[in-house]
Computed example of a mutant assay.
Amino acid sequence: MRLKKGMRLLVAKTIGQYINILSIVYPKKALHLAYSLFSQPKKGRITKDNLPKTLHNIPTKTYHVNEHQFQTYTWKGNNTVILLVHGWESNASRWKKTLPYLLQSGSTIIAIDAPAHGQSSGVEFNVPLYTTFINKVVEEQKPAIIIGHSIGGAACVYHQYLFPETSIKKMVVLGAPSDLKTLVDNYIQLLSLNAKMFKLMEGRFLKKFNFTFDAFSAKIFATKITIPGIIAHDTTDKVVAFEEGQKIASSWKNGRLIETVGLGHSMHDEALYKEIYSFLFEK
């Protein structure tokens, strides 16, 4: 395991060195490569022929947003609709351990495949695009509850910030990052990219999305959220630091932080699910 981790780190540093050298002579090519590595998932794709068991014989629907298309899966129940939003390099099947608890409520559950994940189209993932997918489902299916994991949780927060007046009444965010700058800093550090590449990356985000790294923050977005919510984060999470969850909770007026220990980034736990169920369905 340590050997594999060491090899991955060596490969990352080698790629980073190549990008740094490339930035001197071909900055546009260096930026294209750096941005692609940051925004294009390597895992999470599925097809109709290799569907995980969780998604077998589940009714699907394909939505269209401009040139993009994305897939949803529905477990039909009553008129209370729950929307599930997965994270990076995953797909709708990541909810297989969560579904049994939610299905006890009798609710209709809809799980979405993110951009460039699952059976959705594209090669690039970004939160603004994911948010348009989420909003398409929210407008049509009118969910009362939205649950997001990891970057999917951050997308839920951003969606509620952009569209506060929707059908959504409660939100649960699991292991979500707060600050885009933290994600970029970690990426820059992993590849040991130089200061020039950081500036080029931020310029790319500013031009493409019209925001700086510092401005895109779930902590900032949460200040505008009025619905009640849970922010659950594990102190041993090695993918998204516990402090990120604290940031979101600190500015969410009606948000409650649940601190777990030993669950890592996956956040699968019976006690946690029971507490979430109580928050969602018990008066």
Rank of each mutant, 00 (worst) to 15 (best):
I248D: 01
A249Q: 01
A249L: 03
A249S: 04
A249N: 02
S250N: 11
S250W: 07
S250R: 04
S251R: 09
S251A: 10
S251Y: 08
S251G: 04
W252N: 01
W252D: 00
W252G: 01
W252M: 03
K253Q: 15
K253Y: 05
K253F: 10
K253A: 14
K253T: 14
N254L: 13
N254T: 05
N254V: 03
N254D: 11
G255P: 09
G255V: 04
G255N: 03
G255Q: 02
G255C: 07
R256H: 11
R256K: 12
R256M: 14
R256S: 11
L257T: 01
L257S: 01
L257V: 01
L257G: 00
L257H: 00
I258V: 10
I258L: 14
I258C: 04
I258A: 08
I258H: 02
I258F: 05
E259D: 08
E259R: 12
E259G: 08
E259A: 12
T260H: 02
T260R: 00
T260K: 04
V261T: 09
V261W: 09
G262E: 04
G262W: 03
L263W: 10
L263C: 08
L263T: 09
G264R: 05
G264N: 10
G264V: 15
H265T: 06
H265D: 08
H265E: 08
H265N: 04
H265G: 11
H265K: 04
S266C: 06
S266I: 12
S266T: 13
S266Q: 12
S266F: 09
M267H: 11
M267G: 02
M267E: 03
M267K: 13
M267V: 09
M267C: 13
H268V: 15
H268Q: 11
H268K: 14
H268T: 15
D269Y: 07
D269G: 10
D269C: 13
D269L: 08
D269K: 10
D269M: 06
D269P: 06
D269T: 05
D269S: 10
D269E: 14
D269V: 09
E270C: 06
E270Q: 07
A271Q: 13
L272P: 01
L272R: 00
Y273D: 11
Y273G: 07
K274V: 06
K274M: 11
K274Y: 11
K274R: 05
E275A: 11
E275F: 00
E275S: 10
I276R: 02
I276G: 00
I276N: 04
I276S: 04
Y277K: 09
Y277A: 12
Y277W: 07
Y277G: 02
S278H: 15
S278A: 14
S278W: 07
S278V: 15
S278I: 06
S278G: 04
